[in-house]
């Protein structure tokens, strides 16, 4: 009887751990979000930061936060995807600065201020590329100004725009859309209206989602 007691204790703990693990997995398993036809970007007059052919059959819509490390990690693979599937993908970006990221909102304002001078994507790429540097800074505003110089902006206008209502309203509009779609994490990426969730949220998973979306297209 006695040799079975330690075995029983260990087996009991193993079972409890598996049960708790299964419960946690069920709780944290991400729910896929979908964008209805009414909520789709295509055809809406609002200005969206997009690159790629306007008539591309696959729309990739990202909700990102410039201070979020996973967003930074997925940024270049998304750009690569757009290059690889030229004319087949339209990449759009929406600001979703998280409240717990101290500099995410100023970074979003910097990107939008650059956008007012037609350099949104240049600033977007630079903010992600230099993420580890400016996020460590106590006040990144000087670094944002130097980024503005690097991407060739009129720095006086940039400094004025970064605190303008126009820029704030654009970020607020993106956040409103995120709320409408149920987005609460970053990056949240939709491929033709279906969010990529869980372990699939990686370069290979995105590529697979684009391939699936292309395969679902009616043949012409």
């Amino acid at each position: 009887m006695r040799p079975l007691l330690p075995l029983g204790i260990v087996a009991f703990v193993a079972l409890v751990a598996m049960g708790v693990g299964a419960m946690l997995y069920h709780t944290y398993k991400p729910q896929a979000l979908t964008i209805s036809k009414e909520q789709a970007v295509i055809g809406k007059p609002e200005k969206v930061h997009a690159r790629g052919a306007a008539t591309a059959p696959v729309i990739v819509e990202e909700f990102g936060d410039f201070q979020c490390p996973p967003c930074g990690a997925i940024s270049e693979p998304l750009n690569q995807l757009e290059r690889d599937y030229h004319n087949k993908i339209r990449l759009t970006f929406r600001n979703f600065p998280l409240a717990n990221h101290q500099f995410a909102q100023p970074a979003a304002f910097a990107a939008e201020a650059a956008g007012l001078q037609g350099r949104f994507w240049e600033m977007h790429d630079l903010l992600y590329r230099e993420q580890t540097n400016w996020t460590k800074s106590t006040d990144p505003s000087e670094l944002f100004l130097s980024f503005a110089r690097i991407v060739g902006l009129d720095t006086a206008k940039f400094q004025k725009d970064i605190n303008s209502n126009e820029v704030k309203e654009r970020v607020a509009a993106d956040q409103k859309r995120a709320a409408e779609l149920g987005v609460h994490l970053t990056p949240t990426i939709f491929v033709n209206g279906k969010s990529i969730v869980g372990p699939s949220l990686n370069p290979a998973g995105l590529r697979a989602a684009v391939e699936t979306a292309l395969a679902e297209m009616p043949s012409q």
Binding site: L24, Y28, D65, P70, L185, P199, L201
Partner: peptide, 27 residues
């Protein structure tokens, strides 16, 4: 166990909780 579940559900590949944890767990 908690960290393993976060990894398996893809929660460590997104930001929403602690920024430092996202940085470590997504690395």
């Amino acid at each position: 166990l908690y960290l393993t579940v976060l990894h398996l559900t893809g929660q460590s590949a997104v930001c929403g909780g602690s920024p430092s944890c996202s940085q470590v767990l997504a690395s």
